[in-house]
C-alpha cells in the first residue's frame, strides 16, 4: 500500500517535511501549560490558522514553544475557498505570514465557503457541486498554492443539506479538484460519516470513491445526534464528544485503504483534560499499527 505524499502532487514550490503518520491533537489554549510542563509524546499538533493571526501575546508565546519540538499542521477555517467571490487576498497575506513564521509541515483548508459580500459567517457552508463551483474552487486553490508556494490539503465537508443545482457527486467533485490543482486530500472521517448519514449514502462506497492516493492527513472527531423534519437521523459535526465507534470502524477501513496517515483528534467543545485526547490519539496509532502488522503478515 502506498502512503502518498500529497506534496508530490503539487506542480511547484519546495515540499516541506510531511507530518508523521501518527496520532495528533488539536491544540487548545486550555492545554498549553500542561503540554509545556509534561512534554507529551504526541505525533503532531494542529492549530486553526485564524486564531494566530494576531500580532503577539500568549497564543504566539505558547505556540512557539510547543511547536519547537513537535510537528505542526496549520488548518485554516476562514479562506472561503468555495465562495462565489474572489479570494480575500488580505487573508492570504496573513496566512503567508503565519506559514513563514511557523513553517508547518502541513497546511489545509475546507471545501466550503464562509464569507459573502464582505461578511464572515464563521461557519463552513455548503456549495452546489457543478461546473461553476468546480471552476471557482480550482481557481481559488491554484491561487492559494501559488501565493503560499506550497501545496495544500482540502478537507471534505460535513453537510446538512444538498442542492438541486448539484450535477456531480461530492466524491467526483473532490477527485476533479485534486486532479486539476494537485492539492492533497484531508480525509475527515467524521465529516464523511456525518454526511453519509445525513444524505443516506453508503459510507464505505463513498470512501472508496475518493482520491485516496492524495490523502495527506485524516481528521477524527465526535458528533451529536439529532433528527431531521421527518424523524430521520441527522448528525451534527459538533466536535464535543469522543470519536464515535462507527467512526473508529470507518477509520480502520480507511487506513486499510490508504496505509498509515497523520491522524488528528479534533475537539473544539466540552474540552476534556489533555490525557483523554492523548488516549484517543494513541487509539489511532493502535489502529495503524494493527494495519501494519496485517500488511507484514500478508
Amino acid at each position: 500500500m502506498t502512503n502518498a505524499n500529497p506534496h508530490r502532487l503539487f506542480r511547484g514550490g519546495a515540499a516541506p517535511a510531511a507530518l508523521p503518520a501518527r496520532g495528533g491533537i488539536g491544540l487548545k489554549p486550555e492545554h498549553y501549560q500542561y503540554i509545556l510542563d509534561t512534554r507529551p509524546a504526541i505525533g503532531f499538533f494542529e492549530v486553526h490558522a485564524e486564531n494566530y493571526m494576531v500580532a503577539g501575546g500568549p497564543f504566539h508565546h505558547y505556540l512557539e514553544r510547543i511547536r519547537a519540538d513537535t510537528p505542526l499542521s496549520i488548518h485554516g477555517v476562514g479562506l472561503s475557498i468555495g465562495g462565489d467571490g474572489p479570494l480575500d487576498e488580505a487573508h492570504l497575506d496573513r496566512l503567508a505570514v503565519l506559514l513563514a513564521r511557523y513553517r508547518p509541515e502541513s497546511f489545509s483548508e475546507h471545501l466550503a465557503w464562509s464569507s459573502h459580500g464582505g461578511a464572515f459567517f464563521n461557519d463552513l457552508l455548503p456549495a452546489p457541486y457543478n461546473a461553476g463551483t468546480l471552476a471557482r474552487v480550482c481557481a481559488h486553490i491554484d491561487r492559494v498554492q501559488e501565493r503560499l508556494g506550497r501545496s495544500m490539503l482540502l478537507e471534505n465537508p460535513a453537510t446538512y443539506v444538498e442542492f438541486e443545482a448539484s450535477t456531480m457527486a461530492e466524491t467526483d467533485f473532490i477527485s476533479e479538484v485534486v486532479g486539476r490543482t494537485g492539492c492533497g486530500l484531508l480525509l475527515d472521517v467524521n465529516n464523511l460519516y456525518v454526511s453519509c448519514i445525513n444524505h443516506h449514502r453508503d459510507a464505505r462506497a463513498y470512501l472508496r470513491a475518493l482520491p485516496l492516493a492524495a490523502v495527506g492527513e485524516i481528521h477524527l472527531a465526535g458528533h451529536a445526534r439529532e433528527v431531521d423534519a421527518a424523524g430521520a437521523p441527522m448528525l451534527i459535526d459538533s466536535h464535543d464528544a469522543p470519536v464515535a465507534r462507527e467512526v473508529w470502524d470507518l477509520y480502520a477501513y480507511a487506513i486499510s485503504l490508504t496505509g498509515p496517515q497523520p491522524t488528528l483528534i479534533e475537539r473544539d467543545n466540552d474540552i476534556p483534560e489533555f490525557p483523554v485526547l492523548a488516549a484517543e490519539a494513541r487509539q489511532a496509532e493502535i489502529v495503524m499499527a494493527r494495519h501494519a502488522k496485517l500488511e507484514a503478515a500478508a
Partner: peptide, 16 residues
C-alpha cells in the same frame, strides 16, 4: 434550491 434525500423539510437542516 435545497433538497434532502428523504424529502423532509430542508428548513430544519438549514437551521443547523
Amino acid at each position: 434550491g435545497l433538497k434532502t434525500w428523504n424529502g423532509s423539510d430542508p428548513a430544519k437542516r438549514f437551521a443547523v
